[in-house]
């Protein structure tokens, strides 16, 4: 973009061009929380890796499946998955709060409550369905 004013033939007096520091997101709390929201994808990646590994083990047969179950029961795996779970709850909270602002279909409070209710219903449904299987 040409920042020179039209019609000025004199050279512009110097102006100071600010540079954004690499750690801009540490500047204040608002940016830190934003980065935390973005970072929730990291533990989720681990969880998805676990799921894919589980599917792969299932295709290999019973012994491998038992091996996967044992893997999933290890404390550090449980811990990381708990982290993924809380991270996705946090992400859901931020998302549910932003949604009514982007699509104002009903009063915000109602929309937020509705989204949590829907999440709870779907989650309970899935647990009942899969719980019956395992």
């Amino acid at each position: 973009m040409n920042l020179k004013k039209p019609g000025s033939s004199k050279p512009e007096p110097g102006s100071y061009q600010p540079v954004m520091p690499r750690n801009w997101w540490l500047q204040h709390r608002y940016f830190q929380i934003y980065m935390l929201r973005e970072a929730t994808v990291l533990p989720l990646l681990f969880f998805i890796g676990c799921l894919l590994y589980g599917l792969y083990c299932l295709s290999l047969g019973e012994t491998q499946w038992q091996h996967w179950l044992a893997f999933m029961a290890q404390p550090w795996v449980v811990l990381l998955n708990l982290l993924a779970f809380s991270a996705s709850l946090f992400h859901a909270k931020t998302f549910f709060e932003l949604f009514p602002r982007v699509m104002p279909l009903a009063p915000p409070g109602l929309m937020i409550a509705g989204q949590w209710l829907a999440t709870l219903l779907v989650a309970t449904g899935l647990v009942l369905l899969l719980g019956g299987w395992l």
Binding site: L3, P13, S15, Y16, Q17, P18, M20
Partner: peptide, 9 residues
Amino acid sequence: SALAHFNVE
């Protein structure tokens, strides 16, 4: 300080 992200004159 001056508004961020703009050139300071």
